[in-house]
Structures are given as C-alpha cells and as structure tokens.
Computed example of a mutant assay.
Amino acid sequence: MIRSIVFLSLLGLSTGCAHHQNAPTAPTPLPETGWNAQYDQRYSPSGWPEPLYADVYTPTTAGPHPAVLVAHGGGWTRRSRGDMSDIAETLASVGFVVMNIDYRFAPAHRFPAQLHDLQVAMHWLHDRRQALSIDRERIGALGFSSGGHLVSLLGVVAGDDGALDQPWGGPETRLAAVVSGGTPSDLRKFGDGKLVEQLLGGTIDEVPDAYHQASPVVHVDSDDPPFFLFHGTWDMLVPIDQATDFHATLQAHGVHSELYRMRGRGHIASFLTSGSAIEAGARFLRRTLSPSNQ
C-alpha cells in the first residue's frame, strides 16, 4: 500500500498541468485501506486458444466492494499486466477489488479476440463475486492506450446484443463506469497504421467493416456507462482528437463523460506521469460506483 500511495502522490504533482472538463464541483473523498493480492490467477476457460492470467487485488475492509477490470497498453501486440501493477495497487488501496489482466496479442490473434478476452474476464469476476466480496452491480474498467480502446469498446458494446456481444458477452459483461487513457476511439483514422493493420488483418480499404466494428465511437448509445477520458495534448501516436471526438459523441448521446487533458505530454509521458489522472479517475470511479448511483 505504501508503494501505491507514494506512486499516486509523486505523480500527482503534475495536477497543475491538466484541465478537467465536466469535473465535479467538489472532489470525491478516497478511503485508505490495506489490500491483499493473488498473482497469476488463470481466468481463461479450458480450451481457450491460450491460457490467460490476472493479478487480483482485494481490500482488507469488509465488502461487498466495487471492482475494476484493468487492461494494459502496448499496441495490441506486446507488453503485460505488469505495466499496470502500480495503478492496480493504487485502486486496491482506495477500496476496489482489482483484476489486472493479460490478453491475447495481434497479429497471432486478430480482433475481436482481445475483446473476447475481456468478456470472459468479466464472467470470471461475476462467477467469483462471493469469494472476492464484489458487488456485481458496481464493476468498472480502466485501461490505457490499446487497453483503453478495449475497455472503452467493452463499455459501449456490452448488452447491445450485436455481433461483438456474441458469443462471450451478455449482461455479465456490462460495465458501470469506464476510465480510459490515450484511447484510440476511432480506428478508421488509422487506416495506414501498422499496429491497427496487425490487429484487424489489413488496411481500411481491405477490411473496412473491421475498422468500423472495432471503433468504440461507432457504438455509442444512450445506455452506455459514464466515461472518464484522460489524454496528453501533445500525443502524436494517438492524437487528442481521438479523445475530444469520443467525449463529444458520448455527450451528444446523453452519456456522462469527463475529459482530463494532460497538457504538454505525449503518449508515453501521459502514461508515465499519469498520477494526477489516475487519482481523478479513482475519484470518478468512487463517485459513479457508489451504491447511491445504482
């Protein structure tokens, strides 16, 4: 817990370099609690194309607790849940059950394999809600970069009964809140990007339907959960219009959305110095996942 609090406090020094649109007038208080961790928990079903694992963090206070599914970045092709360990510990230290997952990589596994991985992770959480003392109505998600894309997509397609909600979706995959940073929300704008081509299996001219289906902004409707988006204003890898357009689309559909602009930071820097955004995101999750909001 000490490591998590130091991480949050030190990186939170950059608060003055951010602008929080649609922020609440008064900050939501964050509790402080101890936590326990279970590492390398297999969450993928038997017979899944490859075994997938998660680290699960549980507060030491009495539940039931809200929970957060956490997904790492890496262009859908690399990295691991270890990148999100500090963030997962921070969330656990303020009262969330946290499931920090790995997922399958492109190009060996094309979209929507990664979304299916998040969907089965949600089923895993629901199946163990009593053992982990989870309130099943208060499950959110947090991700950065490609992980932000995946949690955002999960948030806007769950329960829609469309193609992406089958066969691994269903009501158990519905999120109550989403925190997403550096998010590629409209993959149609990356038609010549190598990482997106590896994920979707071709250029936008070759597989236009895949680009459409894989873009969270396309699936927004009025039933979607509240969103907290954070993004670096100097992000050249995922330009900030990916956040501003997504934010505007959510609002246009009557979905609560907050946009936290991290001034003067690019894609990597906005992750490495994300302490103030994670703190604001944690307050957003406490507020939106409180029992009074159900």
Results as ranks from 00 to 15, higher is better:
212 H>Y: 13
199 L>W: 07
226 P>V: 08
129 R>H: 12
149 H>A: 10
188 R>G: 15
224 D>Q: 05
179 V>Y: 01
189 K>V: 13
151 V>S: 01
143 G>W: 01
128 R>A: 03
185 S>L: 09
142 L>A: 11
187 L>W: 08
129 R>N: 04
239 P>K: 08
175 L>E: 04
211 Y>F: 14
251 Q>N: 12
160 D>F: 05
155 G>D: 06
197 E>H: 15
226 P>N: 07
187 L>T: 14
249 T>A: 10
211 Y>G: 06
170 G>E: 01
146 S>V: 07
142 L>H: 05
270 S>A: 14
210 A>H: 14
253 H>V: 05
185 S>Y: 04
186 D>C: 08
133 S>D: 14
133 S>Y: 02
130 Q>M: 08
179 V>E: 00
239 P>L: 09
190 F>E: 09
152 S>Q: 06
239 P>T: 14
232 G>R: 10
183 T>D: 02
167 P>I: 14
129 R>C: 06
158 A>H: 09
141 A>L: 04
256 H>L: 09
203 T>V: 03
173 T>D: 02
230 F>K: 02
138 R>G: 01
247 H>K: 00
173 T>R: 04
160 D>V: 12
251 Q>R: 13
197 E>Y: 06
227 F>Q: 05
206 E>P: 03
270 S>K: 03
158 A>V: 11
221 D>E: 03
234 W>E: 10
192 D>N: 15
253 H>W: 03
159 G>Y: 07
139 I>L: 01
186 D>M: 07
